[in-house]
Simulated assay, not measured.
Amino acid sequence: MAGVEEIRAGIAVATEKAQAGIAAITQAALQLDESRSALMMATQGSGQPDVAQAYGLLAEALQTLAAAQATVHASITAAEGYSVRL
């Protein structure tokens, strides 16, 4: 079994990579938000169901990304809590 310092080092690497994942999710969310805004501007006043569906799906994707960020953050918190207790 790995020693305490090796475990802490491994957790530090894992949390660093998870933070990078959160940053990537943030970038993806920004791109999708820009896409949603562009769609709204381009289709303003349209009553077409496809437009409403596309807008709704982009909003759903943004919510999913926000949930993923929260889950990853919770994972980081749990891992860091374990590291502190070692």
Results as ranks from 00 to 15, higher is better:
A66R: 07
A28F: 01
A78K: 14
G81Q: 08
L58D: 05
A2C: 00
E6C: 00
V4D: 15
A18I: 02
T43R: 05
A52V: 12
S37W: 08
A9E: 11
T43Q: 07
I76R: 02
Q27C: 00
Y82G: 13
T77V: 15
G10S: 13
A68H: 03
A28R: 06
V51D: 05
A67M: 08
Q48H: 13
A54S: 13
S46I: 09
A24I: 00
V84P: 08
V72M: 01
A61C: 06
L32N: 04
E16P: 01
Y82M: 14
G21P: 03
A14D: 12
E16R: 10
A29Y: 02
R36D: 05
I76Q: 07
I11A: 09
H73E: 11
I22P: 02
L57H: 14
A12K: 15
S37K: 12
T15C: 08
V84Y: 13
S46L: 12
A68V: 06
T64C: 08
G3Q: 02
I11M: 05
Y82T: 14
G10C: 06
E34Q: 15
T43H: 02
A14H: 11
A18N: 01
G21V: 04
Q31Y: 05
L65V: 02
S35K: 14
D33C: 01
A74D: 06
A68N: 03
H73A: 13
I25F: 04
E6P: 00
A12P: 13
Y55E: 13
I11R: 06
